[in-house]
Amino acid sequence: MDEINWSLLWPLLALQVLLAVIGLFSLRRTEATRGPKWLWVFILIFGNIIGSIAYFVFGRKDI
């Protein structure tokens, strides 16, 4: 267990990136969000999984 097994960890990172990318894609397609759009871009990129969930639940007007 001394070294980290990256073959098990990278899917986790890839999925988080995928979640943020889905969020950014939907942000690009949507007309209006709750709160300013640039803020959601920021939250999606730096907010990790919680940021992405927050965008999908609270950011989108047509949930």
Partner: peptide, 24 residues
């Protein structure tokens, strides 16, 4: 509404995280 995309991804992340945190 992207629900069929983002919610399964969240579930998969949760499913990966639990065994990983237990192991490490």
């Amino acid at each position: 509404s992207y629900k069929l995309a983002w919610i399964p991804v969240v579930f998969i992340i949760l499913g990966i995280m639990q065994p990983l945190t237990t192991y490490y």
